[in-house]
Write a protein that binds this DNA or RNA. Sequence first.
DNA 1: GCCAACGTTGGC
DNA 2: GCCAACGTTGGC
Length: 152
Amino acid sequence: MAYWLLKTEPGEYGLDDLAAAGERAVWDGIRNYQARNHLRDGVRCGDLALIYHSGNRDPGVVGMAEVVVDPYPDPSQFDADSPYYDDRASVDVPRWLCVDIRFRERFPRPLTLAAARQCEPLREMVLLRHGRLSVQPVSDAQWRFILRYCRA
DNA sequence: GCCAACGTTGGC
DNA sequence: GCCAACGTTGGC
């Protein structure tokens, strides 16, 4: 079982939408090869993920979700009406993956990016070193630290 | 809205 | 395969 951090813009699809989605939400639209490779090579059913809100006034980790299925080809890449359509992808040779997740919790004390930068145990976190990656691994130690912080 | 950092495209 | 031009992300 592994830990991840998934980014999203709350104005598009945030923790509220995830909570409202119930048992299963399609986490699609990932269009970055490094993020895709994390899905392909790492993310599996049963993994847990921090939900990170970006592009808002106070970016940070706001909640947690559970991965409920192994990664599979993102249907939106085949949909010409979708903003995530990719005409280089085909059903036979899909280019992008997505995953389904389920809301687990909303943190009483979100970890803002600014606060994370002040936390020594998070110094090596991918979020702080490589800010733009939308699917990124979280180490066991980082996970434990963040949960203790956010649930306090 | 600005801009730095990073990713992608495409000519050669 | 290099690299310049361009596009995107995302904090501020």
